[in-house]
């Protein structure tokens, strides 16, 4: 599904005299359909940067990020902007810890905006554990955990074959965490590829297939 080859990324800060900092060096990584790969490593090791490169939020210095799509292989490191937007809509979802949508629109509307029927949105929010009485309300009034469920629902609304998950359970209590992880496992079992970062490696049977450790922007041995 996803093949990353020779991926390198650095930042050049022109406000500090053009000082350049490498965050990823020569990363090779594969994620197959129906596989969940988890990235671990100290903070600053490049885990989030790797996800952002795949999603196209960061430009890359070198390397290829090949994604299998029904219309052929797309190199996410080189696709034109318009194509990247289309690929995100159809093929790649990303969830972070931050609500990236206007908090004043109701939860169910935010999900249906993804192009799915309201009944479907309601079912998804219910599966993720958001109480029905909150579906029609705007996330502005929600707790951090409830907001996060909306975030996850938006990314899961369309059946996107690749999901990038950046510490998505950090703000959830134990019960909610387990519900969300179960939904993720179901998606994985039905063929979705997951590339994830967890604050704490979850002990959820059947979810994680492979753990890759990053250190100083380089991939260490696979566990």
């Amino acid at each position: 599904m996803l093949r990353i080859r020779g991926l390198s990324k650095s930042f050049t800060n022109h406000l500090r005299g053009g000082d350049t900092r490498a965050v990823l060096s020569q990363v090779d990584l594969d994620v197959a359909a129906g596989q969940c790969v988890v990235l671990t490593g100290a903070s600053g090791s490049g885990k989030s940067s790797l996800l952002r490169c795949v999603y196209g939020s960061y430009t890359v210095d070198a390397g290829r990020i090949e994604l299998d799509t029904p219309s052929g292989v797309a190199d996410l490191a080189a696709v034109p902007d318009r194509e990247l937007i289309r690929i995100r809509r159809e093929h790649v979802g990303m969830v972070t810890q931050f609500l990236s949508v206007p908090p004043r629109i109701s939860a169910v509307d935010l999900v249906t905006e993804q192009g799915v029927p309201a009944a479907w949105a309601t079912e998804l929010l219910t599966d993720l554990g958001l109480q029905p009485e909150l579906h029609g309300l705007a996330p502005a009034t929600f707790s951090g955990g409830e907001r996060q469920l909306v975030n996850i629902a938006i990314a899961l609304a369309r059946p996107r074959p690749l999901l990038l998950l950046d510490e998505i359970t950090a703000s959830l209590d134990h019960g909610r965490r387990s519900t969300v992880l179960s939904v993720l496992r179901e998606r994985k079992e039905s063929g979705t590829a997951l590339l994830a970062i967890f604050h704490e490696l979850p002990d959820h049977p059947g979810l994680i297939d492979e753990v890759c450790q990053l250190a100083a922007g380089r991939l260490k041995e696979t566990v």
Binding site: L15, G56, T59
Partner: peptide
Amino acid sequence: SGVTDRVLSDPRHPYTQL
């Protein structure tokens, strides 16, 4: 120029960084 979240999260030109 580019996809909005890319330009704002990985600005490359000195002026955009500012």
